[in-house]
Every structure is written in structure tokens, then in C-alpha cells.
Nucleic acid binder design. Sequence first.
RNA 1: GGACGAUUAGCUCAGUUGGGAGAGCACUUGCUUGACGUGCAGGGGGUCACAGGUUCGAGUCCUGUAUCGUCCACCA
Length: 870
Amino acid sequence: MKELNTKYEHKKIEAGKYQQWLDAGYFKAGIHPDRIPFTLVIPPPNVTGALHLGHALDNTLEDMVCRYKRLRGYDVLWVPGMDHAGIATQAKVDALLKEQGISRFDIGREAFLEHAWAWKHEYAQRIREQWAKLGLSVDYTRERFTLDEGLNEAVRKVFVDLYNEGLIYQGERIINWDVQAKTALSNIEVIHKEIEGSFYYFRYPVVGEDRQLLVATTRPETMFGDVCVVVNPNDERYQDLIGKYVINPANDQPLVVIADEYVELGFGTGAMKCTPAHDPNDFALAEKHHLDKILCMHPDGTMNEICGKYEGMDRFACREALVEDIKAKGLCEKIEKHVHPVGHSERTDTIIEPYLSKQWFVKMKPLAQDVLDHQADPKSKIDFFPSRFEHIFAQWLENIEDWCISRQLWWGHRIPAWYHKQTGEIYVGMDEPKDIENYIQDEDVLDTWFSSALWPFTTLGWPEKTADYQRYYPTDTMVTGYDIIFFWVARMAFQARHFTKDRPFKEVLIHGLIRDEKGRKMSKSLGNGVDPLDVIDKYGVDALRFFITTNSTPGQDMRYIEEKVEAAWNFLNKIFNAARFVLINLPKDFKPLPISNLKLAKADKWILYRFNEMLANITPNLDKYEFALAGNAVKQFVWDEFCSWYIDLSKATLYGKDEEAKAVTCSVLYTLLKDIVKILHPYVPFITEEIWSCLPETDGACCISSWPVSYPDTSKKEADQMDRMISLITTLREIKVDYNLKPGSALSGYVSDENDRMIPFDHEETLILERMSKLSLLSNKPQGEPIVRVILGGFIVIPADELVDLKQERAKLNEQKEALEKELKRSEAMLNNQSFLSKAPEAKIAEEKEKAETYKQQYALVLEQIEKLG
RNA sequence: GGACGAUUAGCUCAGUUGGGAGAGCACUUGCUUGACGUGCAGGGGGUCACAGGUUCGAGUCCUGUAUCGUCCACCA
């Protein structure tokens, strides 16, 4: 048993504790095969750098769940791991090499990957150090990486199976091309931003005629890829032009005018240029009308060889130059300002080029439908907290398009497809073809999310039917931000459904973003990021965790406010000192007595009753991830009831002479402290473990102890008696403030019930009154002007002639009178309402009647007193 | 163009099946009370955005409006 420090110093308390937990193997799953398993996988952080506050939020909530479930007696498995994060990591390694003057193309694929792995090892270690700082109770014996061998095998199997089922295909389509990263992206990696661009109106001379056709575009540089001009077949203006040729002002080439209903009658000029290789709609038109698809750019966004003098120019430089040239030719009618959404790369923020390219796709409709079908079944659906995200999730799946999964990168899972050197035939398989010398492998890798989507089951050993997979899958809870529902949650859902015939997790807790104190997103460019390590250094991780868990609401964004972390620290300091108080007052040879065998005093019964109330309140809230509601209820109990009242009340016996009473108080203090520490453990694991280790008669660690149960034999009636005492003590304090008496000054007086009968106090209560208020009870009603105040269940009379300020007393009584009148009016209105009496629940009516009764008595008393004062 | 969220004390936010408006910080008065001044005791401060409706009863449910924010959406 350790000795508790005299001061709360978070650094001292947190030091070494995590390693002790790990050394003892407390977070290793499977130690208790008899227990019900509870599984959670960590959303694998990218190995691109340090963890930020967003990770702290996510991971703290997960650790909360795990530690709570562990205390509830589950065999908890929390699988840790990291994500290779293809584009992001490759960009970082590229940048690092660039600093050394190296291009990845100089050193080649293999050498580059060596650098990438070295990077991964370095950052994985940093991430683990941060997990340790946060106190995450993960099982390191099961740590995985999205690019490790086992996962690679699973990824290949998934690819090959989907390919064989016709759910993965290769196709030449318009994809979102990132000209900076020089890779394809999926639709959700494109961020649409409203950009002020221009609408250019150009005149296209009609071949052989002396007239011009007006065509508008927002992207003149793609005119080199135009193959025709399209008009609506019902557009009367252009009937005679259909089938004729016009001259493209960009390159003076003839373009045929075709008709298609796709062109909207009222929009623009009614004539649309068609660029099949640079626009998805134009591509669809080209397929329909068997038109050519002409690329006019290189993969890096510069113009290609078909663009004549513009070859090699950046696409936007080309746009400007071309417009100038067309103006010079006199073919530019006008340029209008035009605000429209423009796709940007999520990673590089460059403007996406819709680009014709051969890529691999997942056919999404059937896979998504499978998930949607199960979402309609309460037994196999994934439950979202809060539930509104289920609609967002379902809506996205309903409108899903095929997923472009190939990426032109090196860092990732290589696509298991090989092309025959002579025939070009495609071979897709788990392993390379036997006559590999005749094949070359596809150069591309898979979208990072393709492997992340398998995370809940591949980490448990799938496709092997391992013991872990059988015991721990499907997982129970996933904790993640609303920003990756589409990227990740939806994809896990369909891959799990398809390959494991199950949901990947039963419940999803969705949290929001953590923002800066002004509500802005934290970002590098704004420089408003907060490093969790700095916060931990200043306030300790427990304070950070308590701030996070008690200031966030499921699904809702939160702001980082340092004052609130400080407030959390203050609470921890409070707990620490409460623990000190208890420990200081326990006798050296203390042995806790079972509460149920004790002759409890009123104060004991009161606090135990309150504890039961609190426990009954928080448990269901914790079960539905309402950590803030539960946490604040615990805080309120600990601070306002345990510390402010019970500890103070306990001093009456602790500092008294009754050894038997003292022993009872000690046991109650000890037992309650122990329970409080357990309840708070998921929130603040370090300080609670510290206090636990200083408590006598505890074995093991707090983190593997058990969730408290409620105390037997507590009653509301007895709790109410203590509430009368509390009301009395509070009133006495008010009187002292009213009369400018020192808090420690002595008073004498008596308490009467509504009928003016003196209420007797037992020994315990007398001691408490003396201790808390320096009130000595009178046995006879004295003469003279008294101060009279209404309290719960009666009134207190303080005879104090020389003190009494009649004016003040009248004012006070009138205040009370008015308040009571208001309450009575409200109460009577309710009780005189026949509808209320006939429709409201009985318990509510009884409650109101009881209240009304109390008010009436108190009101009568106040009136009587006012009359006495005259 | 759709969908969703927010609007409650000076600030940041809770408020779980509808039943007398809460917290933290800030403000204010008093206090070396044998755990804690990082504290203790007392106090002030809100027409719950607005307008209707349902209900015996609405911060809470319904409809609409306003403001802010987010996501989704190929109109050249």
C-alpha cells in the first residue's frame, strides 16, 4: 500500500502507471474465457505524423467504453493498429526525399518503399508513445498494420473474389484525376468548392455559311479535346444546323453538330461543346453516339501534343492564352462571371481534372443493397448513436456510384492483376502466374480505404477462422467521426456483409470535430492547432480526458476551451483531496466492515441513498454513450454531496468520542471512496489508479476491479430527514450572512414543525448542528423577538433580541410569501384542473398534492410570522 | 437544388420517454472552518430565435419563418 502525496501533481501520478498496466497484462484479452467478450477496433491512425486533438477525442471515447466494459466484467479486446495511408504517406516520404535532392523516380519503386517503411517504423513508435500518454487500454499483442502480410493476403483474397464474382472490373472511364499527385481518386475524395470562374461565350463559324453558332464553356482549355457540338433536337433555333459543321475557334478544326435531348433547352446558348475525354456527361454522350474521346492533357495537367502551340503549358495558363487568342480572332462574344462548384483534391487541394483513364472499379449497387436490406432488420442492423446518422448512411448507400479503387502510387497494396506481355490477357489471382516471365504486374496500388474497409475482421485473423475471429467477431462498438461515415463506416459495412455475412460492429458511436476556442476547424494553415501533448504536460491526461468526455455530445462538434480543462483539473484536485481526507482519518489498522452489517447513522443512510440514485442514473447513460450526462452526474455527486456535505457531516463523528460511530463512518467513507474511484476510472484512469493503490484492503488494480452495485436498505424517508438537516444548516448560514455574523459564530434556537411543536433531535443530529452551525438547541421557547425562517418540514427560531432587524425580517418574510404564493397558485391551478386530475399519471398527481400541502403549511407559517412582527 | 444540425445566463455548452430552467467560466459579498483558497459559504443574472399548432401541461412533440453552420448534388 502506497502513501498518497500531500498535493495533486498530475505528472507524478501519471508517471510509470501505463507501463505497470502493460507489464501486468491487464489489457490483454482472453485471460477470462468465461467472460462475455466485448470487442472494439481502433480507427487506425495514419502513419503520417503526430496525433492531434481529434485523435485524443476519438481514442478517449474508445478507452472510456473499454474501461467501463472491463469493469462491468467483460473480456474486453481493443485491437490497436495503424493505417499506411497511401497518398498522404507517399507525399510525406516524397517531400523528405526531395529535401535530400532525391526524386522517387531516380531511386525506383523498391528503394522508395524501403524509405516508406522506415518512415512507418518511426511514426508508429511515436503513435504508440502518444497512446501511452493517453492511457489507451489496447491489447498490443494483437496490434496490426494495414499493410502487414496477413492483411495483404486478406486484401488480395477480397480483390480476387470480387473480381471473380464480377464485382470488380477494369474500365476506361472518366475519373477524378489529381494532377499534382498524378493519381486517380474516388468520388468522395473530391471536395466541391464554390469558385468564381467565368462563362466564356465563343462564336463558332458555320462551315460554308456566313453565320456563327454561339457556344458557352467554363473550361476553354478543353476545346482541343472537343469532338462535336450538341444541341437539343427540339430547339427550333438550331434545327437546320444539325448534321452541319462548325469551326472550333481553338484549333480551327471542324466539329459536327449533333442533336441530343441531354442539352437543356433553356440553359446557356442551347449549344454545348462536347469533350468526351474530360467530362463524364460528354463521355456518356460519346458512348451513345460513338464519338472519339480525345485527351488534350498530360497526366500532370499540362497541355499535350494535340494542342499545337499550347503544348506544355499548364491547363490554366493555356486557358488564359487561348481566350486572348480567340478574342484576337474576334470570335469571343462575351465573358460572364460565373460562380460554380469546382472539384478539388482532398489531399493536395488542386483542382481535379475529369480525365479519361483505365482504372479498376468496384460495382457498388449490389453490395450496397445488401447492407441496406439488413439495415431494415432490427436484428442485423448497425445501430448508430445518435440515430440520425443512420439516415445519412442509408441515403449515401442508396445513391452510390461505382468505386474507383486503383491509385497510381507505390505505397499500398499492389493490385493482384498481371498482363500477358504478348496477348495482353489479364490474369487476376492470389499469387503471380506460374509463367511469370510472360507477364507484367499492374503497376497500381489499391485505394487505402480498400484495406481499411476490412479492418474489423482482418485484424482478427480473417480469412482464417482463427480463435480470435470466432470469439471476438463481429465487434461490438465502433467509435468514429461523422466525417468518415462514407469513407470508412459504409465501406466496412458492405465488405463485412459480403465476406463475413455479418455486420462489422453492432453499434457506432459518432462524434463530431474538435474545433478551436472560436469554433474554427483546427488546421496547419491557420496555426490554431492544439497539441494534446502540451495539454497533457500542463494539466495532465486525466484533465484532458475529463474535459473531452464531459464536454462532448454524441454527433456534435465541440470546442477546445482551456478554461474547461482547467476546471477538470480542479475537479481532480478535489477528488484527490477528498481521498486524502478519507485516508488521513482511517485508523492504522483499518479493516472495512461490510456496509450491510453496520448500524448506520442518518448521514450515512442519506449519502448511500444519494449514491444509489446517482448510480441508477449514470449506468444506463454510460450504456448509450452519454458520457457527458453520466460524468456530470458523478461530478455533482462527488463534489456537492460527498465532499461538501458528507465529508463535512462525517467530521461530527470522526472528531467525536464515540468509537463505534467512528468505525461506522470510516467504513462508509472508505467504501464510498472506493466506489467513486471505480466509477470515475473510465474517465480518469490515472488518478483513480493512484488513489486505489493507496487504499487499504484492495487487491489488484482499479482498472480490473468491478463496477459498483447499489447499497441495500436505503430509504427515501430517511434521506428526507437528512435533507431537513441540510435545509436547516443552509438556513442558518443565510441568517449569519444576513446579520453579518461570522460563519463560526454561535447561535441558539429551536426547530418546530408546522404545528409549532418542537422537533427533537437525536444525539447524532445535535452533534452535527453544533459542528456545522455552532447551534445549541434550546429546550424551552424563550421570550422576545426571534428570527424565524421556514425550512424543509418546519421552521427555525433564533431568539436574538439585540440582533433582530425587524425591517429586514419583514422583507425576508415577504420575499418568501411572494415566492410561496406563486408556487401555490401554480400548484392549485394544476390541482383544480379536472383535465389534469383525469389525464395525468397518478404519481404526478400525488407528487403535486404533496407539494401543495407543504406550500400551504409554509405559507400559513409565514403569514403568522408576518402578523407577529406587525 | 436537396438533407441535416444549431439558435437556452455576459461567454462556451448540457438539458435522455413532455410535468417547477442547469453546469463551467465570468461577475458579486463574506471566510486562514483540523482534505482542498486549485478552496468554503452566500448572491445576482434567462420572454429557452420567432410565429402558429397539439396537449391538462411544451426548452422538449408538429408546421412554418429567420439567422448561422455542415454534408450531399454532373447543369455545359
